[in-house]
Design a protein around this nucleic acid. Structure first.
Lengths: 204, 204
DNA sequence: GCCTGTGAAGCTATTCACAGCT
DNA sequence: AGCTGTGAATAGCTTCACAGGC
């Protein structure tokens, strides 16, 4: 199993590589990827090593092959499905950002408790009533939940997701959610991050 | 100067403490804060130590005092101002999330190049034409920029922010931006994070 | 000559574990 | 008895530096 931080960087490399591919690049050196990803060349080589891919000392890494190789490490060959809970501005932003971006990973259902949103299709993703969450998550075989509801509802939504059998949660609500240890959870705390930037903008 | 990760956690502790304060709590132990923040008690104590605050072995930490102490480490006494560039769904979500949350840190201007948005006030924040960015950032004394424009425009926007004298950038566009070394930059890469969750949802 | 792959070194961050206090 | 504060130990992550290959 690849380390958490390495997975993050591999995802970034892949995005860069896809752009390079579309620009017609055949090969790339670790120092070039490093600049584009904002890391050191040694870091790039280590990360690529960790998925067992090998470059060529003369030509660097094959762009297409490396994309392929990252895919076979990161992606589920069957594809994975995510559900988004909370169709506010942030939820819609995520649906827009993400729609059709990655073939092996799609947000296939959205949930909200505002009945004006029910059955509407936003960015190719249908919106359901929140109380149908467990039913639909199981029916569609979804295993990732994205929480974009207000803080006060986050734990309740998380519990429902876990009951429905989800395995990973991406939480945008600014509270720590308690989940069983076998669930992977990642928090994106936008307020905290802005405060961090403010602090270092001052101190640097 | 406090370490990057510590600043992040202090911001989280503060949010928890504010909630505790509003619930009438007077004191709190490191192990209680630890559970609520999702870290270890030793971590909490180290972080608090790093800002020079001291608790009491009998009563733990004073809630109000600790909030005060975190504030005097993290906040600029004069207050700091931020500008948001790109008033799409994500931009609006951030304005909503953040409006009036922290007295010492406010988003005071938004920029977009859609003229239908000019002069509209969104969550108490006025929207200006993108080409007035440098002028207004300087006029208002803004020193933090939040980038929520599409990838293709992010570097250009970042350059304008830097020219205008900004000191820190929070970047939501999924590209690494090149900035001078004296600018602090933090990236929030939502696609990358979702891919991380997807990976560990599978592997755990 | 300039690259990759990688053992070893170096750093940073976290946790242990316990003295000291109340 | 149960907490905080903290030196020391540990774990995790990144970079160095160089052998080996083209």
């Amino acid at each position: 199993m690849v380390a958490v931080k390495t997975v993050g960087r591999l995802s970034i490399y892949r995005r860069i590589l896809n752009r390079l591919l579309s620009e017609g690049a055949k090969n790339v050196f670790s120092h070039q990827l490093a600049v584009m990803a904002g890391v050191t060349p040694a870091q790039v080589r280590r990360d690529i090593m960790s998925i067992g891919y090998s470059g060529n000392p003369n030509r660097g890494y094959g762009v297409a092959d490396l994309i392929e190789s990252i895919g076979s490490s990161l992606d589920d060959p069957e594809g994975q499905k995510a559900a988004l809970v909370g169709v506010g501005n942030l939820g819609r932003a995520i649906l827009t950002y993400f729609s059709g971006r990655r073939p092996k990973l799609a947000i296939v259902a959205a949930f909200d408790n505002d009945h004006k949103k029910f059955d509407r299709v936003i960015q190719g993703c249908r919106c359901y009533a929140l109380d149908r969450l467990e039913e639909i998550v199981q029916e569609l075989g979804i295993d990732i939940g994205i929480i974009t509801v207000p803080s006060g509802e986050a734990q309740k939504v998380s519990n429902a997701l876990v009951r429905a059998g989800i395995k990973g949660i991406l939480n945008y609500a600014p509270v720590r959610i308690q989940v069983p240890r076998n669930i992977y959870i990642e928090d994106i705390d936008m307020t905290m991050t802005l405060e961090k930037v403010a602090y270092f903008a001052r101190k640097k």
